[in-house]
Simulated scan of single mutants.
Amino acid sequence: MTSAAVPLLAGLTAKARAAAHARSSACPCGATTLADRPDGLVVRHADTVAKAHAPGTEPAELAGRLSVAARHPDILLPPLGRAPATLHGRLVTFWPYGAPVDPDDPDAAPWEAAATLLARLHRTPAPPGLPCMRGPAKAARAVTRLREAGPHPAAAPVLRAWATLPPWARAEAPMPHAGTLCHGDLHLGQLVRRPVDGPWLLIDVDDLGTGVPAWDLARPAAWYACGLLPPEEWTRFLAAYREAGGPAVPAEGDPWPALDVAARALTAQTAARAVAKAAAAGRPLDEVEQSVVDACDRMATVPPQLAQEHAK
């Protein structure tokens, strides 16, 4: 954490403590920092979590996303209030604490729950005025950071793969048929249980909005294509999504024409972040990072499949 962020952490901790004691007199010792990234600082105190959102977050857009979470507590963890606070120029929201997925127990990963929640989210009508899902914009920023990171031998295949994508996947044009309510940044870290033995819920509404639903399936699809997700886990995820009536892929047959573009974009985004970090640290890529760069190298030689509705 930079010295400039220390006052933000102290203030956020104080706000989390105040919000927690407004709901309960119980007070476990101290506070815990759950995340410390440029796009979000997250602090837990007792049963309350406070999040400072990324600088420049639009208040109206965040309020709209919070409203969606509040209206659908069986899909998304509902916030504690719908109006963000302000702290050191950052918008702050409050949430009940939920137990996350255990990263040390991959066999217990809730792939079926994640897929079912996504399908239910995708079938939920999006309210008027909700902003676009931010997935493609985040991918484009990762590629921009790669270009700004300086020369690295692994950058070229990533940029070649990125260049094969249609403009909407590079955030250079509107997403086609983008009226579906989407999470925008789905991975297993975006699920919690509340209570700890209760049902899984989705968290993190920062990227929530309307868009192409295939984007929400793209990260596990990309991991599967890169050999990072076992085929049986991908099959469980896809089968559960279809069983729950998810609209991102056809109910039967080959799902890949619907997923290929988004999966390629997420692969390029992951590789761009990895290469940029390696370049900044002056280190070689590790095995996982190299696998996504190798996937980009392969992608650059084969045009992406385009689903019928995406090709219009």
Rank of each mutant, 00 (worst) to 15 (best):
T2L: 12
A4C: 08
L8V: 14
G11S: 09
A14N: 14
A18G: 01
H21Q: 11
H21F: 04
A22H: 04
A26K: 04
T33Q: 10
V42A: 00
H45W: 07
K51Y: 00
P59D: 09
E61R: 14
A69F: 05
H72P: 11
P73L: 01
P79L: 02
T86G: 10
T86N: 12
H88L: 10
F94K: 04
Y97G: 03
D105Y: 02
W111K: 01
T116L: 01
P125C: 06
A126P: 04
G129T: 11
L130A: 13
P131C: 07
R134S: 08
P136A: 05
K138A: 10
V143C: 03
R145F: 07
E148W: 12
P151F: 03
P153E: 11
P157D: 02
L159Y: 03
L159M: 07
R160D: 15
A161C: 09
A161H: 12
A173M: 10
A178R: 15
G179L: 13
G184H: 07
D185Y: 01
L186Q: 06
G189D: 08
V192M: 02
G198M: 13
L202K: 00
G211D: 10
A214P: 05
W215L: 15
G227I: 05
P231N: 11
E233S: 15
R236L: 13
L238P: 09
P247I: 14
D254G: 01
P255E: 09
Q269L: 08
V292A: 06
D297F: 02
M299I: 12
A300W: 05
